[in-house]
């Protein structure tokens, strides 16, 4: 057996397999998950603390603030409402949805809303509202902030 070509071929194949297997694994990992420094970040998202302040010309039944499907804050039953909330900024901006519910008999109410995000300038919005109202609020700050 010793020195037979068949034995040498077997040893060669086994050694080859032992080398190929880790190489495959290594190359496979490289393809499925490139190192972090090779990935390109398309947009920067961060969580920020904010404070919202509402003034209503009439008494709303409900006020809710959503970001996507996430309910960030809710209030209602007062002409002045304020509260702390946490929202996600993507590329220094965010899209919020304000959901307001007014008494059915109310014709129109004016809403003043201001939002203060830590270290960023105030944003303000004013609008007329009635019934079951959905308002989109596109928050955007200058890049330097």
């Amino acid at each position: 057996m010793k020195g037979s070509p068949r034995f040498e071929i077997c040893l060669f194949v086994i050694a080859g397999l032992l080398l190929i297997l880790p190489l495959r694994l290594l190359t496979g990992v490289a393809v499925s998950a490139p190192p972090d420094h090779l990935t390109v970040s398309v947009s920067e998202t961060r969580e920020v603390n904010a404070w919202v302040d509402f003034r209503f010309s009439a008494l709303p039944e409900k006020v809710k603030i959503y970001q996507g499907d996430v309910l960030l804050w809710q209030g209602g039953g007062s002409r002045r409402e304020d509260g702390d909330l946490t929202l996600r900024l993507t590329d220094n901006g965010a899209l919020l949805r304000l959901e307001l519910l007014w008494p059915a008999e109310l014709k129109d109410a004016y809403v003043e809303c201001s939002l203060e995000v830590d270290e960023m300038s105030d944003l303000r919005k004013g609008f007329w509202s009635q019934g079951h109202d959905d308002q989109l609020w596109n928050l955007a700050w200058e890049e330097s902030q």
Binding site: D118, E119, M120, S121, D122, Q145
Partner: peptide, 10 residues
Amino acid sequence: IYEAGRLVPS
């Protein structure tokens, strides 16, 4: 030490 103006927009 708390800095009162830290989170005010600069």
